[in-house]
Nucleic acid binder design. Structure first.
Lengths: 386, 386
DNA sequence: TTGTACGCGTTATCAA
DNA sequence: TTGATAACGCGTACAA
C-alpha cells in the first residue's frame, strides 16, 4: 500500500507515530522516516492548530527564524520578518502559552485563592490585583476555597500543577495547617498573604490595621454614650479576629469600661451564626446597648434582629460593622462601619508578588504592608451627644 | 578539566546543552553524551522541580513505568507501583499540568469572561459554574472585561493562548463585533454564551426569560394602580435590554395603556447614567408614577433619588428592579425585583460546556436554555388596591 | 542572518 | 510487565 519515498519498497514500511497530525512511516530498509503529502492522507487524526513550524514550512525558513521574528529579536532581516508576520496573520497563528511556559519554566500567571465570592470584599480585591497584574503581562488564576480547608488544599495543588509564578492568598477560616502553602515556598514560588493571614507562616503580607479600625469604632460608640458594648467576633484562629478583638478590648479599657467576657462571642463569619449569637446577646437579662460586629453581614443581621424585636437603632442599640460593603450605605439609616481599602489591597498584593517574582533571589526583605482603614459614620451609631 | 566518562580524554569535550538543570557534555571522539554526577556540578543553573524522570532514576526504572504507576495503568506490578508512589511522595513530586496539557492538547480548564465583578450577579454565576466544573475535574480561568471591548478581546486571546477546552462568556456592553469569539469555534473550542448574549452569533446559550420577567413586573405595577410607568432600559444592542423592553411594552399594551416613547430611556447599566436619566424622568412636567428599571443598581439609584426629592415610595412612586441583588431585600421597605437564578445559570452553562467538550464531534444540537425568573414583591411597589 | 539540534515534562506507541 | 523513543509547541545556544 504505502511505498517508501526513497527506495520505493512496500514490504519494509512500518508506522512510526504521528507528525503534526499526519501518520509517519519508517522504511526499515533504508532507515528513512517520512510522511505522505496531505492529499494522500485522508485520516485527519485530530484538529491541528497552526504552529510556528507551519509558518516556517509555508515560507521555507526554519522555526528558529520564525520564533525570532515573532519575538522581535534583533538579528533578523526586515524582509523575512515582514513575511513571517504576514504569514502568521494569514494562517491565524495563536501562540501556545503552554509550550512557552514549559520551555521557559514560567507561566506568566499568578494564582489567587479567596475563601468566598459572595460578599463584595474579595471580588473588589481581585479587581484591584487583576488590574496591576494584567498591566504587567500576567494572568490571574482565581480559585475559591469556599471556607473549606480541603478545597483550599485542592486549590493549591491545582495552582502548583499549573506552575503559577506566584500565589496571593487569603485563608479559609478552617485552615490551621500550612503545609500546602509551604510547598510553594519550598519550590521558590513566592507567596503573598492578605487579609486572612496567620502568625505562624508568611514573610510577605498585606493587611489592614484591624486593631486601629476596631479601636476607633468602639471609641466612637463610647463617644456616643454607649456603655455596654458587645462584640460579635470572628473565629479565634484568624489574626483579623484577634486584632479586632484587641482593638475592642483596649478601647474599652482606655475609657475605663469593664471588659465583660459574656459580651464577646466568637462566630464563624456566617450569617447563620450571627443570627444565633446576635439573638442570644439581645435576649440577655442585661443586654448590651451597642454591638461591634466583626464584619458587615454580621452587623446587618443584628440590625434585622433589632428591627424584628422592635428595638430602635440607634437609640436603644448602636451597631457598627467592618468593611463597608455596598449594602452598608443603604440599610436603614445607614450602617456605621470601618471601611477597608479593598481595591488597594489587591493592588498592593499584586505589586508585591510582581516584585518577588522578578527578584531572582529570595533577597527581598520580609515585609508586612499595613493599610489604613477609615471609620464611616452613619445612622446606626449616632445618637445625640454623650 | 572535564574528562569523558567513557574514553577519559579531555581535549575533545564540548558542552552540549543542559539536562535537568545540569551541564551536559559531548565527547567528540567517542560521540558520547554525558553529564557529571551532581557532586562535581557546583553551578546549579536554576531550581529544578522533581519530575517523573527523577523518580525513574531514583528507582532505576524507566519514565514510562513511572508514568504508568502514577496514573494507575493496569499493566504494572504491584511492587514497582508501590515503590514508585512512595518515591513520588518522598521526592515531593508534583505533576506538571503544562506538560500534560501540551501532550494531550487538552488543558482541563475552561475560561469564563464576565463584564464585571462588582454586582453580586456574576460572582454568583461563577460560584455555580465553579462547583460543577471542579467536580468534573476541570479548572476555571476567570477573566473580566470591565465592560470594555478591547479588554474582552485581550481576554479571549489569553484564553486561546492557554488552550482552554471551552469558553463561557457574558459579553461586555460595548461588544458589537464577534470575531474574537468565532476564533474559538474555528478551532473547535466550544463556546457557551450566557446572560449577555447576542442574536448574531452563538449556538449554545443560557439565558433567563427576560421577556416574561419584565412582563410580570410591569403587570404587577399595573395591578397596583400605577398607570404612567417609565422604563429605564439597558443598552440597545444587548438582547437582555431588548427583551426586557419588549416585556415592558407588551404588558402596557395588554392592559390598554399607552406606550409613551418619552418614558423609555436607554442607559448603559452604570449607576452614573441611572442617576442622570432617573433625575430627568422625575423632573418631567408630567412625571411617571412608577419606574421599571433594567437592573437593581439602577432601581436603587431611583429609590435614592426619590428619597432625596421627598417623593414617597410606593405611594407616589412605584419602583421595580431586576436581579434581586442582596441589597434589594434591605433597602428602604424592600425593592420589588425580578429574581434571576444566578447560581443555576452558572451550573447550567458549566454542564453545557462539559457536554460540548466531551462530545468528540460537533454533533451536539444547538440549544438555548431558558431559565425562569421569579417576581419578588416587596415594599417599593405595593400600595393599597387599585 | 539563518539553520540545527536540543531541552522543557509528560503521554503513548510499539518492541522487547 | 517494562523500556525506548517519538511527539506535543516553543525558545535558544551554537554552528554555519
Amino acid at each position: 500500500m504505502i511505498e517508501c519515498s526513497k527506495c520505493q519498497r512496500v514490504e519494509s514500511i512500518m508506522k512510526a507515530g504521528f507528525v503534526r497530525g499526519k501518520q509517519r512511516y519508517l522504511c526499515k530498509d533504508c532507515n528513512y522516516f517520512f510522511t505522505l503529502p496531505s492529499a494522500q492522507v485522508p485520516t485527519k487524526r485530530k484538529r491541528h492548530q497552526t504552529t510556528i513550524i507551519d509558518i516556517a514550512r509555508e515560507l521555507g525558513v526554519s522555526n528558529s527564524t520564525v520564533s525570532r521574528a515573532l519575538h522581535g529579536h534583533p538579528d533578523i532581516s526586515p524582509d523575512t520578518k515582514k513575511a513571517i508576520l504576514e504569514a502568521a496573520i494569514q494562517l491565524d497563528y495563536q501562540p501556545n502559552q503552554l509550550a512557552y511556559s514549559l520551555v521557559k519554566s514560567r507561566s506568566n500567571t499568578v494564582g489567587i485563592i479567596v475563601p468566598e465570592f459572595l460578599t463584595q470584599f474579595f471580588p473588589n480585591v481581585i479587581v484591584g490585583a487583576q488590574g496591576v497584574l494584567s498591566r504587567a503581562g500576567y494572568h490571574l488564576m482565581i480559585m475559591q476555597s469556599d471556607e473549606s480547608y480541603e478545597t483550599e488544599v485542592g486549590n493549591t495543588r491545582a495552582l502548583l500543577a499549573n506552575r503559577v509564578d506566584g500565589l496571593i492568598v487569603s485563608m479559609s477560616h478552617e485552615t490551621n495547617n500550612y503545609e500546602h502553602f509551604q510547598a510553594f515556598e519550598k519550590r521558590g514560588v513566592p507567596v503573598v498573604y492578605f487579609n486572612r493571614v496567620c502568625r505562624e507562616i508568611g514573610t510577605y503580607k498585606v493587611v489592614v490595621n484591624d486593631y486601629q479600625g476596631a479601636f476607633r469604632a468602639v471609641e466612637h460608640l463610647i463617644a456616643n454614650g454607649y456603655r455596654r458594648i458587645a462584640h460579635l467576633a470572628g473565629p479565634r484562629n484568624l489574626v483579623i479576629s484577634q486584632e479586632r478583638l484587641r482593638g475592642y478590648t483596649e478601647a474599652l479599657q482606655k475609657y475605663g469600661l469593664p471588659v465583660l467576657p459574656e459580651l464577646t462571642i466568637h462566630g464563624d463569619l456566617t450569617v447563620e451564626k450571627a443570627r444565633i449569637y446576635g439573638r442570644y446577646l439581645l435576649e440577655l437579662d442585661h443586654p448590651p446597648d451597642a454591638i461591634f460586629a466583626v464584619n458587615d453581614p454580621t452587623a446587618i443581621e443584628i440590625l434585622l434582629l433589632a428591627r424584628a424585636k422592635g428595638l430602635r437603632v440607634p437609640e436603644q442599640l448602636g451597631v457598627v460593622g467592618f468593611s463597608d460593603d455596598s449594602i452598608a450605605m443603604h440599610i436603614g439609616n445607614g450602617l456605621t462601619t470601618v471601611k477597608q481599602p479593598t481595591n488597594l489591597m489587591g493592588q498592593t498584593a499584586a505589586e508585591l508578588i510582581l516584585k518577588l517574582i522578578s527578584e531572582d533571589e529570595d533577597t527581598y526583605p520580609a515585609e508586612t504592608q499595613v493599610l489604613e482603614t477609615e471609620l464611616i459614620i452613619r445612622g446606626s451609631s449616632v445618637r445625640g451627644g454623650r
